[in-house]
């Protein structure tokens, strides 16, 4: 019990001391996951909108495939990407293996299906009169799309928060295609795995606290936004 408490308090102290190595690892995690999310967001929203509003051959196959991809383990995504990016793989010439761009690609593959599936649900649940009202009041197709995004903003924010939570906490893909190189590709989850393997729990606990606090902040913010929206809608 004493050991646990000592580890926890040392981890807190390390966080508060501004340890450059520890915060550098946090920085890698946030920059990689934020980049992946930003790159995936617009194409994913467009795909979700297309699946929700347009009927075309193969639509149900695409939706089924998308739902299947939601359950793909992160390590499988890492494995496939590793085979593609390794020297002998078809994309080996790009020299991306064990780099941050490789980690970003892996996380894009992980968050894209989730963003599409959740935005598809949001668009399907949206009132069909939104687009008609926007168009009849003179909105162009792009303006009407932006209006729809605004009307379903809370559901889309939930999708973004969920996707960010999934990719910043994933370890399989980051470990396989990132290589866990200090100051380059070592992120929170791969560092925790490494430190735990070495029996050094302090840094792992400190990084775990960062992840937990981040998850708490994201979810409390989302909850506040959703409840605020309900108050505005119903006045209670």
């Amino acid at each position: 019990m004493n050991d646990l408490w000592t580890t926890f308090s040392t981890a807190i102290a390390q966080l508060l001391s501004g340890d450059p190595e520890l915060w550098g690892i946090v920085g890698v995690s946030f920059s990689v996951s934020a980049s992946a999310l930003l790159i995936a967001l617009l194409p994913a929203l467009s795909a979700g909108f297309t699946l929700a509003y347009f009927r075309f051959p193969g639509r149900w196959v695409a939706i089924s495939l998308l739902n299947s991809l939601l359950a793909v383990p992160t390590v499988v995504v890492g494995l496939v990407l590793y085979m593609l990016l390794s020297r002998a793989g078809p994309l080996g010439d790009l020299n991306l293996l064990f780099t941050r761009p490789a980690m970003i690609i892996g996380q894009i593959l992980l968050c894209f299906p989730l963003l599409v599936a959740m935005s598809l649900s949001a668009f399907q649940a949206a009132d069909h009169r939104v687009l008609e009202t926007a168009k009849t009041l003179g909105a162009s197709p792009l303006q009407a799309f932006v209006t729809l995004l605004f009307e379903v903003r809370f559901a889309l924010l939930a999708a973004v928060v969920t996707a960010f939570g999934r990719i910043i906490a994933e370890v399989g893909s980051a470990m396989m295609v990132g290589g866990n190189i200090l100051h380059h590709t070592r992120n929170i989850t791969t560092a925790i795995a490494l430190e735990t393997g070495k029996g050094e729990f302090v840094q792992g606990v400190a990084l775990g606290i960062v992840l937990l606090v981040m998850a708490l902040i994201l979810n409390v913010s989302l909850g506040w936004m959703q409840s605020h929206s309900r108050v505005l809608r119903h006045g209670t």
Binding site: E132, T147, F150, E151, R233
Partner: peptide
Amino acid sequence: NTYLFDTDVRSNVEYGLRMR
């Protein structure tokens, strides 16, 4: 059943002008 955007009354009236 008229659809009103999830904003205040004034923003709803301004909507069409904003689009122009």
